[in-house]
Design a protein around this nucleic acid. Structure first.
Length: 812
DNA sequence: GGGAATCGCGTTTTT
DNA sequence: CGCGATTCCC
């Protein structure tokens, strides 16, 4: 089926000496590894991206690889873009033509090229998580299941998780009624997606994997084409991504059987990852893939990049010391030549409010000292923690930026516009149909849609096709909607993408609707922004001008292929059909782009602002000054994560990621009390604080260390201000009961079995229990013999104790 | 069909 | 407590 140009690698050219300059010995070894599968353990701040890009540039410069023979995979669009941008400065070729992208982006390209083999429509559309959930809801409703028992969200999660493990409905384990129904829903969901010509994120991966698995010539073709496969953040790969990778890689036994590696037709996988930064197990990532890779791919070279170019010594000591408490590691220790730097400072606050206040003063101080606000990052374990910090910053008028939340293409008004656009492309997309059939309102109610869905189910056709089944006013309204979609389709024929979108926003009634809305101005702006995004997309991708294969001289070489698939296309989102070269419409391509790249999720960019984000969101970023807040048992480590065995280790890795974000200054803080879910919680400080080396720390609270001069004075003032704010915070020390707490009893005196004599307990007081260790009294109830106390023992959890029996001693 | 009241829930998130 | 989703009522 395929013919290949088996061009042996030419003798290395003289490389640009600047390319390899300033690499340390380990980096150099990684960059210049001979062909063969390799695993690079790249510690935080060790120059990972540099090694990846330099490796590609070096292979190309030395003539071992043509741009068309590269496949580089990342997890995020941001990482892919960065790689492309850096390569652009290193190479005289256009890196946009290389197969560099996210797992999902590359799958999309692959399926666009082989849509027929994959049994998809050429302009199949991609469901994001929201779309997918509403599709599942539709299925569940259609099957008339009890939504209490079969929660759509859970089923949606189950389907995604199954696909992420490579399981089709027939492969899922069925052991009871519940799982049997789940399987049926999964099957029905698949049928529905197939009927509507849509795929969800996991389907992109799974479909690609299966196509390669079941089609030998195709698989062999791609194995020959991609000489070098590079994978970033390998520790975050899930089961399916690992299997997927195996499809592209030459099996190691075949690679080994070749006498000389240089002439072998085997390709090479260059996997880069850091097991200590694996923080996505909750969404299916399997760190075990690293060990599996080493074993199954018979990796000969494991290179560790341990020299850190980011942080000062004390920060690295803290990170190393902390992570050494994990048992399941491949083993790695960061080192620096930058000197110890400032100690890691630790602050204890009486309340979350005071913690925020302290943070605020600290940020002000740093800014006064010349640090840009954008170099100050405030990290927290969960999004709910940002609220107090935000309000403190807001009230003080300090600009800040919160990462997270809705992204551009996920906004309701944008999704609505996209739904109309999708319908002009494919009126049988029921998800989009239901989203906008009555938005803006046009007299199509819930019962009408029930009937329409029943009719569609009965005939096995789409909603759009089933409108004729309904008569009366309802049928007329539906007919009018169909006619509108149809006229949109006709009117936009031949228009530019920009004109199409403008037309649809106007004629759908969306523009008028938001004009009439009191709060619609921002949404209108966003719709304008959608037009701009489309314009930028077209310009950037170069569609319409020269969306054709790049000049041959840029792409020819080993790996040239002969099945009509262009080596490289200027417009990567317009991947042509592998056989016919047909390219999908700009609109379909833009819709794909919108699904695959949800856009920024940071609020108002522009001015210099303090950066607020979760630890997860901070991965891959770095800042001069980092604050890690809320270091309390239950919060960080999070109590819900402690349920499973590996939970604590993942939490610790999360802390490790947080620590290693800091370049110059690291501050840790925790609070004795915190408002959570509408009630005050009394917390014990995080065990992670105990796992840090004392020598690298400087405690700012009197208990552990006195105040000195300079910085410390600042802290003292900040702390006092923070703790002196309003009656809410009271006297500020844990010894006095917080005035704002309203438990049943605030103070209780009982005969203590431990200390012969009276024991006085107060809410907020620390106590020691012979079995559970240190805890904080949360609630007191009853009296005398049946006096009870609820005590938070941190890692041992919240306990109710009978005070007549429990052996408690007070801690001061 | 849409606004108001009520319910329920509350790690982490990219594609 | 604060939110989103659902339900209720006009």
């Amino acid at each position: 089926m395929h013919e290949f140009d088996s061009v042996a690698p030419s003798a290395p050219h003289a490389t640009d000496p600047r390319l390899l300059a300033n690499l340390n010995p380990e980096q150099l070894a990684a960059v210049t590894l001979p062909p063969g599968h390799a695993l690079i353990l790249a510690g935080a701040g060790s120059g990972k991206t540099r090694v990846l890009t330099t490796r590609i540039a070096w292979l190309i410069q030395t003539g071992q690889l043509s741009p068309g023979g590269v496949m580089a995979v990342t997890f995020t669009n941001k990482a892919a873009k960065e790689m492309i941008a850096r390569l652009g400065t290193m190479l005289p070729v256009n890196p946009r033509g290389m197969w560099i992208g996210t797992f999902h982006g590359l799958c999309n390209r692959f399926l666009r090229a082989h849509w027929k083999l994959a049994a998809l429509p050429q302009s199949f559309q991609i469901l994001d998580t929201q779309d997918s959930l509403s599709a599942v809801k539709r299925v569940v409703k259609g099957m008339q299941l009890d939504e209490e028992r079969f929660v759509p969200k859970q089923i949606s999660w189950f389907i995604a998780a199954s696909k992420d493990e490579g399981r089709r409905p027939r492969d899922v384990a069925v052991h009871d009624e519940q799982s049997r129904v789940m399987q049926q829903v999964y099957q029905a969901y698949e049928d529905q997606c197939q009927r509507e010509g849509v795929v969800d994120f996991a389907e992109l991966m799974l479909r690609t994997y299966e196509l390669l698995r079941d089609n030998d010539p195709l698989r062999e073709h791609y194995r020959r084409r991609f000489r070098h496969i590079l994978v970033d953040e390998f520790q975050d790969t899930n089961r399916l991504q690992y299997l997927w990778l195996k499809m592209f890689a030459t099996p190691p036994d075949r690679a080994a059987s070749s006498s000389s590696p240089g002439d072998s037709d085997a390709n090479s996988v260059f996997a880069v990852g850091d097991d200590d930064q694996s923080i996505y197990a909750f969404r299916g990532a399997q760190v075990g893939n690293m060990a599996d890779f080493e074993r199954e791919f018979k990796v000969r070279e494991v290179i560790k990049l341990e020299r850190n170019y980011r942080s000062f010594g004390n920060i690295l000591d803290a990170a190393n010391h902390l992570i050494s408490h994990n048992e399941h590691r491949l083993g790695k220790n960061l080192r620096t030549e930058a000197g110890p730097g400032e100690p890691v400072r630790v602050n204890e606050a009486p309340s979350d409010f005071a913690e925020a206040q302290w943070l605020l003063d600290e940020a002000r101080f740093l800014h006064r000292e010349g640090s840009p606000r954008s170099e100050i990052a405030v990290l927290y374990r969960s999004n709910a923690q940002s609220r107090v910090i935000e309000s403190a910053l807001f009230n003080a008028g300090i600009p800040y930026r919160v990462y997270g939340g809705l992204r551009f293409f996920e906004r309701a008004e944008i999704k609505h516009a996209l739904a109309y656009l999708r319908l002009t492309e494919n009126p049988n997309d029921d998800t989009s149909y239901l989203r906008v059939v009555n938005f803006p309102a046009r007299g199509i109610g819930a019962r009408t849609l029930e009937q329409l869905q029943d009719a569609a189910r009965a005939s096995g056709r789409s909603l759009h096709q089933s409108v004729g089944a309904l008569g009366g006013k309802a049928g007329a309204n539906l007919g009018a909607f169909n006619a509108m979609i149809e006229s949109m389709r006709e009117a936009t024929h031949g228009l530019t993408l920009r004109e199409i979108i403008e037309h649809v926003i106007a004629t759908s009634g969306l523009a008028d609707f938001y004009k009439a809305e009191r709060e619609g101005a921002e949404r209108l702006e966003n719709l304008d922004e959608l037009v701009n995004a489309a314009e930028a997309f077209v310009t950037q991708e170069g569609f319409g001008k020269d969306a054709v294969a790049l000049p041959v001289d840029e792409t020819a070489g080993p790996g040239t292929i002969a099945d009509g698939l262009p080596q490289a296309v200027a417009a990567v989102d317009f991947t042509p059909d592998a056989e016919t070269g047909e390219i999908m419409s700009p609109l379909a391509a833009f819709l794909t782009h919108a699904a695959l790249e949800a856009g920024d999720n940071q609020a108002q960019a522009g001015q210099d602002a303090v950066q607020l984000m979760t630890v997860h969101a901070a991965k891959g970023l770095e800042f001069d000054n980092v604050f890690i807040t809320g270091l309390e048992e239950g919060l960080f480590p999070n109590e819900r994560a402690l349920a499973d065995a590996d939970g604590l280790e993942e939490e610790r890795r999360l802390m490790y990621v947080a620590i290693t974000r800091a370049r110059k200054r690291l501050c840790l803080s925790f609070s004795q009390t915190r408002m959570l879910h509408g009630q005050t919680r009394y917390n014990v400080k995080s065990r992670f604080l105990e796992e840090l080396p004392e020598a690298a720390l400087k405690w700012l609270t009197p208990k552990n260390q006195g105040f000195g001069s300079g910085f410390a004075r600042e802290y003292q003032q900040a702390w006092q201000r923070g703790s002196g704010l309003g009656s809410m915070v009271g006297a500020g020390r844990v010894e006095s009961p917080p005035a704002w707490a309203t438990p049943k009893t605030r103070e209780l005196t009982v005969e203590s079995p431990a200390a012969s004599g009276a024991l006085t307990l107060r809410v907020g007081k620390s106590v020691f229990h012979t079995k559970f260790g240190e805890g904080v009294v949360v609630t007191l109830e009853g009296s005398g013999a049946d006096a009870r106390a609820q005590i938070n023992f941190g890692r041992h959890g919240m306990k109710w104790l009978a005070l007549a029996i429990a052996k408690l001693t007070p801690i001061d």
